[in-house]
Measured scan of single mutants.
Amino acid sequence: MIINNLKLIREKKKISQSELAALLEVSRQTINGIEKNKYNPSLQLALKIAYYLNTPLEDIFQ
């Protein structure tokens, strides 16, 4: 099972779900679904998340 630290990292960087969704060009519901482990992001989306949060991919999804 993948450990998902997206919410923790996003909140630590003081970025809202809506702000991150806008940067990634996805819906806020997509971010919410990823954070609640209801949706697994594509590799492309996971890499974009890591880029915009300036955090290694391995720290977000373990």
Rank of each mutant, 00 (worst) to 15 (best):
L53V: 03
L53T: 03
P56W: 04
K48C: 08
I49N: 00
T30W: 11
I3R: 14
S18K: 13
Q62D: 08
A22G: 10
A50V: 05
I34P: 01
L47F: 08
A21F: 03
K36I: 10
N4K: 04
N37A: 09
M1S: 11
E11P: 01
Y52W: 09
N5F: 09
Q62V: 14
Y51A: 09
L45P: 00
D59R: 08
S27F: 03
L6R: 00
T55Y: 06
S27W: 03
P56N: 08
A21Q: 02
I31E: 00
G33V: 09
Y51I: 08
I2A: 10
N4Q: 04
M1F: 14
I15K: 05
N32Y: 09
Y39E: 07
Y52K: 05
N5V: 05
T55P: 03
A50L: 03
E11K: 11
V26K: 02
K48D: 04
L20D: 00
V26H: 01
T55A: 08
A46G: 06
S42F: 04
E25A: 13
I60T: 02
L43Y: 12
Y39V: 13
I9E: 04
K14S: 09
L43A: 10
K12H: 10
L43M: 13
Q17N: 03
R28F: 09
P41Y: 05
S16F: 04
K12W: 08
E25V: 07
N5Y: 08
Q62C: 12
T55W: 06
A22Q: 11
Q17W: 04
T55C: 08
N32K: 14
N40G: 12
R10C: 07
I3A: 09
D59H: 10
I34G: 01
Q62T: 11
I9G: 01
G33D: 15
D59Q: 13
V26L: 05
Q29R: 14
I15P: 01
Q44A: 14
G33N: 15
L8I: 15
I2H: 10
S18L: 11
I31V: 11
L8N: 12
E58L: 10
G33C: 15
E58A: 11
K48F: 04
T55N: 03
S42P: 12
I3M: 12
L24S: 05
S27D: 11
D59F: 10
I34T: 02
D59E: 14
L6E: 00
N40I: 15
E19W: 07
F61N: 02
K12N: 10
K48Y: 04
L53I: 03
N37H: 13
R10Q: 02
D59T: 09
I34Y: 04
Y39M: 11
I9H: 06
V26F: 03
S16E: 05
F61K: 01
A50N: 01
S42K: 06
I49Y: 02
A21P: 00
S18Y: 11
Q17I: 13
Q44M: 10
K14V: 04
G33P: 01
I15D: 00
E11C: 09
L53G: 00
L8F: 13
L23V: 13
K38N: 10
E11G: 06
L6G: 00
L20N: 00
R10T: 01
Q62H: 11
D59W: 08
A21L: 03
I49C: 03
I9Y: 10
A21R: 02
G33I: 10
N4F: 06
K36A: 13
L43I: 11
N54Q: 14
E35F: 02
L6N: 03
K12G: 10
L47W: 07
N32S: 13
A21I: 03
V26R: 02
K7D: 02
I15V: 09
L45F: 07
L24V: 15
D59C: 14
V26I: 10
I31M: 05
L43P: 12
K38L: 15
Q29M: 09
A50Q: 04
N54R: 09
S16L: 05
N40E: 13
L57I: 13
N37R: 11
N54K: 11
K13R: 12
S18C: 10
Y52M: 10
A46L: 09
N5R: 11
T30E: 08
K7V: 06
E35N: 00
R28D: 08
T30L: 15
S16G: 06
N54D: 14
S27G: 06
S27I: 03
K12S: 13
P41Q: 02
L8P: 06
A21S: 06
A50E: 04
L8Y: 12
N32T: 09
